[in-house]
């Protein structure tokens, strides 16, 4: 990473080859749309290239740094998309466009379910849902409670218990 900060092109290429697939996996998981995910992937690595000097080796691995950067940019994108969705829907309806055929939609949701992997399998379905909404959709306690029509206190404890369970699973996997 320090060589990337010194604008070493070869070091950057290696960094990209190593971490781009998992980063794009995360971006696709959050954004759902492949093309948009690839766009954000470019933004993320552009930011890594121009701001590698902000990376702090004591706080995270290069991979963790890139992934959390990617998550935050993807969540920003998701929020902006929500804000403009209403207008797009109106335009789409006027043009009578078939935005996405049902077949494709079903295939994608299957694909997305498949992408949720081992780390979350140890959680109860309720805990898992809450953590997914927070991590992959950027929702807060209150927003999750509204979305799931569940009491706020219940959501808070599902997240706390879920995160502790997740930590146990992750540390067991490391050993």
């Amino acid at each position: 990473m320090s060589r990337v900060a010194a604008h070493d092109g070869a070091a950057f290429t290696r960094l990209f080859e190593h971490h781009a697939p998992v980063t794009l996996g995360l971006l696709s998981r959050i954004l759902g749309r492949r093309m948009e995910a690839e766009e954000v992937l470019q933004e993320v690595f552009l930011q890594v290239w121009t701001q590698a000097d902000r990376y702090d080796a004591d706080r995270s691995t290069p991979r963790g740094y890139i992934l959390m950067l990617a998550r935050s940019r993807a969540l920003d994108r998701l929020r902006r998309r929500d804000a403009s969705r209403r207008r797009e829907e109106v335009v789409g309806a006027e043009q009578g466009e078939a935005v996405s055929p049902l077949g494709t939609e079903r295939l994608e949701s299957l694909e997305r379910r498949r992408q949720v992997t081992g780390a979350l399998d140890s959680l109860s379905p309720d805990q898992r849902r809450c953590i997914e909404l927070a991590f992959f959709e950027g929702l807060t306690h209150t927003q999750i409670a509204e979305r799931l029509e569940a009491p706020l206190g219940t959501v808070k404890s599902r997240i706390l218990l879920g995160m502790n369970k997740l930590r146990q699973t992750l540390s067991a996997e490391l050993q």
């Binding site: 697939p21 998992v22 794009l24 996996g25 995360l26 696709s28 998981r29 492949r34 995910a37 991979r63 963790g64 992934l67 959390m68 990617a70 998550r71 498949r114 992408q115 992997t117 081992g118 780390a119 979350l120 991590f135 997740l166 992750l170």
Partner: peptide
């Protein structure tokens, strides 16, 4: 957790 997604 972020790294546990399926790579693309």
């Amino acid at each position: 957790l972020a790294g546990s997604v399926v790579p693309v």
